[in-house]
Amino acid sequence: MDRRSVLKGIGGTAAVTALAGCLGTGLFEGDDPEVLWHEFQDAEAEQFSDFLRTFNEETEHDLGSNSVTDMEEQLETALPAGTGPVGFTWAHDWIGYYHDEEYLYDATDDIEIDLKETYSEVAAEAVQWEGNVYGLPYAAETVTLMYNGEMVEEPPETVSEMVEIMETHHDPDSGTYGLAYPPIDTYHMSAWLQAFGGHILDEETGELGVDSDAVIEGAELIEQSFYPYVPSASEASAHETTFGDGNAAFTINGPWMVGEYDDMDLGVAPLPAPDGGEPTPFTGIPMWYFTTQGEEADEETLESVIEFAEWYTTDDDVITTNADNGMIPIHNDYVGDDDLGETVGAFSETVDMGTPMPADAKMDSVWAPMEDALSQLFAGDESAADALEGAADEIRGSWE
């Protein structure tokens, strides 16, 4: 039984008890749920609190929010049990599965914003599924190259140049590394897995490509050019700390980490190109989702959550502040604005290289087998071809 099935099996009172145990006693304020959920990091969480306070003051609403960990697990415990948020923020790629599970509220008739006139075409399409509008977008994001300015003078333009710099600084016995980079995270590794023309999942055709020659070539690039220079830990938090402490020349991460590295000489650059390929990372459209809890909430609560999403995704201060933290604006008034700084420019270049994460529910069965395959590759237990072919068999088996 997979993780989703286990969570769905909790149900009812047990689900509410489990949720309270995970989130603590601060989930409810009187009889009113904290209707907005997010999983922002520390710096982003503080900024979001300021935004929400501003919105409440300007509109005389009293929306509450809750910072949760393991958003996916919390939602899949809460929503089937009839609890949880009216709105939450995450990238667009959950929309297909959550639509199929009937977790989402169709706000087509409630929103006052014209999607096409307000947001970029990609962003406007990302928040819709089968013609229904299930949220509003506020940025584009992906992972890109970050470097420690005390170790790296100029960012590399090619993977070969990056390898030369990593070799210079990689000395595990002294606690320094060429690269701090979660080694088994498919999202973080997608740029290289898809660098030679392959697709992990082709959303247009629905075909799985993880065992294609092109994706195997990308996995071999990871094995040969990146894995030798990373710490042995597999947890993302360990790599984030290693880089943040100044003990690695490079990391590859997303805009949500920019604010966490304020105390170091941080540089941000587009992803370097491998020989014979182009980095093609997954890109995401962060959005405020509307859930079926809106149907259960009082009308004022639902309206205030939708109004908040409209405000958050169009407010000048929110857009420019998020841009300062590397989130690429998708509001048409700000798309391509050269005045937003070098960090935004670097992320924007990498976003342009990428491909949207598949929102097809079939993608849900891809992540865990791919993580296992990358883990086997990182440990040296399997060749790239064997690991990915095993993952493909498992994924296709789950689809049958």
Rank of each mutant, 00 (worst) to 15 (best):
P270T: 11
L271I: 04
L271M: 09
A273L: 03
P274K: 14
P274G: 12
G276A: 09
G277A: 05
P279A: 01
F282K: 08
F282S: 05
F282Y: 15
T283H: 01
G284F: 06
I285H: 14
P286E: 15
M287H: 13
W288E: 14
Y289A: 07
T291W: 04
T292V: 06
Q293R: 10
Q293A: 08
E295S: 10
E296G: 02
E296D: 10
D298W: 01
E299N: 02
E300D: 13
E300H: 11
E303P: 06
E303A: 15
I306A: 03
F308M: 11
F308A: 10
E310H: 08
Y312W: 07
Y312K: 03
T313R: 02
D315T: 07
I319E: 12
T320C: 01
T320Y: 05
N322V: 00
A323M: 03
A323K: 06
D324W: 03
D324C: 00
D324E: 13
P329A: 03
I330P: 00
H331Q: 14
N332V: 03
N332Q: 10
N332K: 12
D333N: 13
D333H: 11
V335D: 01
D338Y: 02
D339T: 15
D339S: 15
L340M: 06
G341N: 07
E342I: 02
E342T: 08
T343Y: 09
T343E: 08
T343M: 06
A346Q: 05
F347A: 08
F347Q: 05
T350R: 04
G354I: 06
G354H: 06
T355L: 05
P356N: 10
M357T: 15
M357S: 15
